[in-house]
Design a protein around this nucleic acid. Structure first.
Length: 108
DNA sequence: GAACTGACTGTAA
DNA sequence: ATTACAGCCAGTT
């Protein structure tokens, strides 16, 4: 068997932070990156979520863009999935944005 | 190794 | 409100 690519420490730190976002709450790409010790690298959070293995069961839907904006195109499948998953845990969404009160800064 | 890409963000017009 | 652009930087071509 060959070795899998070892996940970089940055990736694991991001995965860890995301996994700790409580149900019913939402954070942002930038805030996750910062809590993972990677200030200014919001895009890294997006990449980390994209490459996260399915078996990891990461609550990816609890991560949104700055200001609570859902970053996916409204016509995309992911947009609808994210909205459905968030509403299922009681997060209010209007016009592609989660209510500000649901957006939190992850604990360090 | 340069160029390009991207689940981002803040500023400016 | 919307668009444009610079800054960010790991991955991919």
């Amino acid at each position: 068997m060959s070795f899998q690519h070892p996940a970089s420490p940055a990736l694991e730190a991001i995965w860890d932070v995301v996994s700790r976002i409580p149900q019913g709450q939402v954070s942002t790409y930038g805030a996750v990156a910062r809590a993972a010790g990677l200030p200014g690298r919001a895009r890294q959070t997006g990449f980390a979520l994209k490459v996260a293995p399915d078996g990891m069961n990461l609550p990816w839907h609890r991560v949104v863009g700055a200001g609570g904006r859902i970053v996916f195109p409204k016509t995309s499948r992911q947009y609808r999935d994210q909205v459905r998953l968030l509403r299922a845990e009681g997060v209010a969404i209007r016009e592609g944005r989660v209510e500000a009160c649901a957006v939190v800064d992850p604990a360090p």
